[in-house]
Write a protein that binds this DNA or RNA. Structure first.
Length: 484
DNA sequence: AAGGGACACAACCGCATTTTG
DNA sequence: TCAAAATGCGGTTGTGTCCCT
């Protein structure tokens, strides 16, 4: 169907350009070795470029575009064939963390590799991770990107509304890594209600944007069970990815840079801080990442390797539905589920980020910002927050994503469509929200979350749970009120 | 053995940008 | 200066193969 259409469109397009004669017999589909030979011969004689001339000056019935692509992706002499090496894979992940879906730029960094190759690799990898409910960036990459961002953008901008967007992209935003979570307790909590998770039927999720951080998971019991067991074996690593030194064990993947490498904890922060990945349409709805809407049943084929490759993997996150399910669970479990969900949500980090930025702008002290304290949140200007939230209504905004994810996770979504959910999130963020329940749930979840000491008590600065909660409540409440 | 899913890969499409006349 | 052409880029789709059930 599509083929036919595209054939027609090509003919039409070329025809429009007065090149109908050639268009009538332009060949499409796989290249033959004979065609390759013709093209190679042509390039040898005339050099690269002027691809449309190939068709004119040779018997090759291919459009210029096709020739260029064929040459660039397959015939170029400097192409490196074969699988990506672990180092290359590692590099791709790093580059993607920094650049997002800039395949051409990534290819430029990887001699002999093509953008198409990289793109295919990445998309496959994304699909795999998505299916497994795993985050996309390993913690060390997050760290590395964060550090490099700090080095290259060692300027703290004022939270000027106009400049905020660019700050998000370019600054070492989201210094969440400095926020430390204590996970051991969470691990235990997770265990306590894992049986329910294990019975969660996979189904479509209406999570529109929150997957920027981690893929919601549609794991069948077996997979999840294994993942959970792996997770349970984890030391205190899940969210403390900022402290690379905290990783007691090296990755246990077949290769440390394997695309499947363990991705310990990005369940919270699958997107590296300061990364462009989120912001350059990286997670556009057309992106594979948007997959939560099209979740397939996960493959079991990785389970065999999990003990090796995924032993340090992050715990697969519950589906939004699972959160929903858990919300409907008895109170204690519900609290835990919210806690868990929130840990993997982004609202808190977004809020903290905002507060950090605000605070940083005040005293221009990176030292202080390096230890993100909840005290910062107390300084939160609701007015500014309001503005920022408006800014973050941009679906590409990490904060928006984060907020959306939180709201999603605390909103019963059974049977809700993606659009419904998006509208809901927008209604909240845009100040039109009328449903207080999600907010309350989110606040409640944050309350549980903070109350369980998930939050950076290492630096002894997290005792202001009521303040944070109030801030969040005020924030959400105000948004809601504003809409009314 | 058959069917289905996952994967890798190739190729095309549409759009944006750059170049050219 | 502008329109057309060429080129570049990112997204998407199609296909063959392998593996698992």
């Amino acid at each position: 169907m599509r083929k036919g259409q595209s054939d027609l469109s090509l003919v039409e397009e070329v025809g429009r350009r007065g090149n109908m004669r050639e268009s009538c017999h332009l060949k499409k589909g796989p290249w033959t070795s004979a065609e390759d030979a013709i093209l190679v011969d042509y390039v040898k004689k005339h050099g690269e470029g002027n691809w449309n001339a190939v068709q004119k000056h040779s018997e090759l019935s291919r459009c210029g575009k096709s020739c260029r692509l064929r040459w660039a992706n397959h015939l170029r002499p400097d192409l490196k064939k074969g699988m990506f090496t672990p180092e290359e894979e590692r590099r791709i992940v790093e580059l993607h963390a920094k650049l997002g879906n800039k395949w051409a730029r990534m290819a430029a960094e990887l001699p002999g590799r093509t953008d198409n190759e990289i793109k295919n690799f990445w998309n496959t990898r994304i699909k795999r991770l998505q299916r497994a409910g795993l985050p996309i960036y390993p913690p060390d990459v997050c760290l590395q990107v964060n550090l490099s961002q700090e080095e290259s953008h060692n300027v703290v901008s004022t939270p000027n509304q106009d400049s905020f967007g660019s700050n998000l992209v370019q600054s070492d935003a989201f210094e969440i890594p400095h926020v430390e979570f204590e996970n051991l307790e969470l691990n235990q909590q997770f265990l306590s209600y894992s049986p329910e998770l294990l019975n969660i039927p996979p189904k479509t999720i209406g999570l529109s944007h929150g997957y920027g951080h981690v893929f919601p998971m549609a794991c069948p019991p077996k997979h999840l069970q294994e993942s959970v067991s792996n997770y349970m074996s984890l030391p205190n690593q899940m969210t403390d990815f900022a402290c690379k030194e905290n990783f007691d064990e090296p990755y246990k993947s077949s290769s440390p840079y394997d695309s499947d490498f363990s991705t310990n904890d990005q369940s919270s922060f699958g997107i590296p801080p300061g990364s462009d990945a989120l912001l350059n349409s990286n997670f556009s709805p057309s992106e594979p990442l948007s997959g939560p809407m099209n979740l397939e049943l996960p493959s079991y084929q990785y389970s065999d390797n999990q003990q090796d490759s995924w032993v340090n993997s992050s715990v697969p996150l519950p589906l939004v539905e699972s959160v929903d399910t858990l919300i409907q669970s008895p109170p204690m479990k519900r609290a835990k589920s919210e806690c868990f969900a929130l840990q993997n949500s982004g609202l808190l980090e977004a809020v903290l980020y905002e507060s950090k930025k605000l605070n940083s702008s005040k005293d221009d002290s990176r030292q202080q910002s390096s230890n993100l304290m909840l005290d910062d949140v107390a300084d939160f200007h609701l007015k500014d927050c309001e503005l920022e939230f408006e800014a973050h209504c941009d679906p590409n905004s990490p904060s928006a994503l984060s907020a959306a994810s939180v709201l999603s996770e605390h909103t019963p979504v059974s049977g809700s469509s993606l659009d419904d959910e998006s509208q809901f999130v927008e209604s909240i963020l845009g100040g039109n929200g009328k449903n207080e329940t999600p907010n309350q749930m989110a606040i409640s979840g944050l309350d549980d979350f903070l109350g369980r000491g998930q939050f950076g008590h290492d630096n002894g600065c997290v005792n202001d749970k009521p303040i944070v909660t109030d801030v969040i409540a005020a924030l959400l409440g105000e948004d809601t009120c504003c809409g009314n």
